[in-house]
Write a protein that binds this DNA or RNA. Structure first.
Lengths: 248, 248
DNA sequence: CCTACTTTGTGCACGGCTTCACAAATGCAC
DNA sequence: GTGCATTTGTGAAGCCGTGCACAAAGTAGG
C-alpha cells in the first residue's frame, strides 16, 4: 500500500481501536522476526491482489513457507492485530507491516559499482516497487561514466559525497570489486550513510551504529555444495586422506 | 588449493599425523558453522597469497570479522587441526576446509533465466574460481536463446532435463521471474537436482531432501530500511496512527 | 630439564529463537 | 442468550548458538 493512501475502515478494524493501548510499543522486535516480515508482506500482497479480505495464520504461514505458531508470535510483536475466530485483515496487516518496516516512506538508494551486477541491480524491478528509489549510479571507471542505465546517467565516484548529500541517499548498495569495497564504504559512512548492502566479497569494518548486510553469491553456492556432498556420501564415513596419503 | 595438488609436508603436519584418530568424523557440523567456513576460506586464501605460513585464531578471526572463540569452536568441529602455542597452518587449513565444503571436486551449475541478473551471474568470476563450473544457461524466451554469454550459448528451457542429465548438473541457480520459479523448480527436482539457489522472489515448495537457499535482494533492503527508520527515530515512541487518524 | 610464554580446544552459562499446547476471545447458528 | 466451532495470543520447555574463561598442550630460551 502506498503511503498516504486512505481507505474506509472495515467494521473489524473499528473494534481493534478499543482493545489495545499503544502499550509503549515494545521497542525491540527480534531480528529473526524482522527478517521474516518482508516475506509475510509479499504473501499478503499476493492475497490482496486476489481480493482476499482476511487470512488465518495457518494459511498465511503456508503462503510464506513458515510455521503458523512462528507467524503468530512474529505478528504479536507488532501488536494484537488479529481477530480470534477470524484471522487477520489482509489490507490492515499489509499497512501495519509496511509501516513497521519503514516502507511507508521512500528511500533514496545509491548503487556504487556499475559492472554486470550493478547494472542488473539498477534494472531490478523489485527495488523500486517497495518504496526504494534509485537516486544515483556511480562508478570509478571513466569509460562507463555517462552511460544511461535504467533512466539514470552513471556518475563518477568523485561525486559520491555530493550525490549522497544532495539527494538524501540513506542506503548505499556496494557492487564494486572487493578491493575497492572498504574504501568506498569508509567514504559513504563519512558522508553520513548508516545502512549498506554489500555485494562485494569482502569483510567490511564499520563503526558502531552502521548496519551492513552482506549478500555473497559464492558463499551461498559453497553452502549448497557442502550439503550436496553430504547427500552424495549417504552419510558414509569416508577414509579421508591428505593428498600425500597420510591418513589423519 | 586445487584438488590433487601435492606438496611437501611441513614438520608441523607430521606431528599431527600421530595425534588424532579420525574419530568417526562427527557427522553433524552446525549450520551456523558451515555458513562461516567459506568466510574463513576466503580470509585464508588472502593470507596464502601473501605467503603467510601460519595464523593464530585471533588474527584469522579479525580477518574474517568474527570472534576468535567462535572461530576456534567452528574449526574444532572439523577436527583438531591447530597447534597450541603456534596456530593453524594456512595451507593445511585451506585444504581441510575446502574438502569439508566439497570444493575439492568441481560442481556443474546451470543457470535458468538469462535476464539481467542471470547474465550478471554468468559473468561473475566468483563462481568459477571455487570449483563451480557453469555448465548451462537456459531461458524460455526464444529471443535470447542462441545468445553467447560468458562463452556459453543460451539454450531453450525445453532442453532443461537433457542438459541436467547429460552434463551432470547438480546445482541449479534460479534467476527466472517469480511466476516461473515454482514450475522450473519442480522440473529440475524431477530431473534429479537436489540443490537450488533461488534468486526469484517466491517461496518454493520442495520435497524433503532438497536444499533451497534463497537470495532476495528486495528483502535485504527492507531489513535495512527497518533499522534505518529506527535509527532515524532515535528510539522515540511515536504516536503512530492509522491513516484515518484512529490511534491504535 | 625447567620455567615462562603462547595459543588451542572446550566446559559452562546465558540468551534468543522455535515449537507445542492451550486458555481466551470471537463469530455463528438457533 | 447459549453452546459450539474457530482462531489468536502466549506461557513454558527445549534447542541452538555465542562468548567467557581456563586447563591442556605446545614453543622458546637457557
Amino acid at each position: 500500500m502506498r503511503p498516504g493512501t486512505h481507505r474506509p475502515l472495515s467494521p473489524l478494524e473499528h473494534r481493534h481501536v478499543i482493545r489495545r493501548i499503544p502499550q509503549a510499543r515494545d521497542r525491540g522486535i527480534p531480528d529473526a522476526t524482522v527478517a521474516r516480515l518482508p516475506l509475510y508482506l509479499r504473501a499478503l500482497n499476493g492475497l490482496a491482489e486476489r481480493g482476499t479480505p482476511t487470512v488465518s495464520s495457518e494459511d498465511l504461514a503456508v503462503a510464506a513457507g513458515v510455521n503458523s505458531a512462528k507467524l503468530r508470535k512474529d505478528l504479536s510483536h507488532l501488536g494484537s492485530y488479529g481477530t480470534r475466530g477470524v484471522g487477520y485483515d489482509v489490507q490492515y496487516l499489509i499497512y501495519q507491516i509496511s509501516r513497521e518496516l519503514g516502507l511507508t516512506q521512500d528511500w533514496a538508494v545509491a548503487i556504487v559499482g556499475v559492472g554486470n551486477l550493478g547494472r542488473a541491480l539498477a534494472n531490478y524491478g523489485g527495488f523500486v516497487s517497495r518504496g526504494f528509489r534509485i537516486a544515483g549510479l556511480l562508478d570509478a571507471d571513466p569509460r562507463v561514466v555517462g552511460d544511461r542505465i535504467a533512466g539514470l546517467v552513471v556518475e563518477h565516484t568523485d561525486e559520491l559525497e555530493s550525490v549522497i548529500k544532495k539527494r538524501g541517499v540513506s542506503i548505499v548498495v556496494l557492487a564494486t570489486p572487493a578491493t575497492a569495497a572498504q574504501q568506498v564504504c569508509d567514504r559513504v559512512i563519512a558522508a553520513g550513510v548508516t545502512s549498506i548492502l554489500n555485494f562485494a566479497p569482502a569483510v567490511l569494518a564499520v563503526p558502531d551504529g552502521v548496519d551492513v548486510r552482506k549478500v555473497d553469491l559464492s558463499i551461498e553456492l559453497q553452502i549448497l555444495a557442502f550439503h550436496e556432498q553430504r547427500k552424495a556420501n549417504g552419510g558414509a564415513i569416508m577414509a579421508e586422506e591428505w593428498p600425500d596419503g597420510v591418513v589423519m
